[in-house]
Amino acid sequence: MSVLQLRGVSKAYGHEPTRVHALGGVDLSVRAGEMVAVMGPSGSGKSTLLTIAGSLEEPTSGDVLVCGMALAGMPRDRKARLRRRVIGYVFQDFNLLPGLTAVENAALPLELDGVAVPKARAAGLAALEALGVADQAGRFPDQLSGGERQRVAIARAVVGDRRLLLADEPSGALDSVNADEVMRLLHEACQRGVAAVVVTHDAQLAAWADRVVVLRDGRVTGQTARPPGPESLLIPGKIR
């Protein structure tokens, strides 16, 4: 089942003659358990696509469906609830709240949603555990390394029962080994059933995805087919 569906989504800013068309008729469908990377040069519409998919911005035309529910015409409070319960966001600069510990940060979306504090914290701790940073639960963001901060940010994005993960350049300024680790964790979250859209300009990060969509001038200009398994890269009969 598609967790996210964009049908003919367009977005334009301003008025003629200076109107800017950020997206033009984008169709995209992401299934549960699938990670899709969106690649394109700056100004291609990648970030606009993500904010529209996350219901942070409305399209000029076209439909957006999250878990089968159309966002168009949805009351603001329902949309906000959907954002809190179903969608997780991972930002380039992590966006952790400095005054909260790791577990408080991870549990925050649930607490904002009205979940009782002990229950929310338990879920936050479980999310930290899945990302291998449970031992850092009581520390504040400035006491964590860059890699640990991003793990906490991913824990916050998947805490509870999130179905859709949206990530904008999730590896930020991390070095390539830590950036790889971030992508590995996001991919593992998908293998547990979450759908993810990762926006990046970096082909090495995009290659972690099950499908790479190329965006240019607001339009999808191509996408990868499912590549054969990695066995073909190794000496025949040597795969372990």
Partner: peptide, 22 residues
């Protein structure tokens, strides 16, 4: 260019699967 870009991305996906596994 796009045809070659997509082919190379698919190849990178294959190598990344190796990185993830073996």
């Amino acid at each position: 260019i796009q045809a070659h870009r997509l082919y190379l991305l698919e190849l990178m996906q294959q190598w990344t699967r190796l990185k993830e596994g073996e």
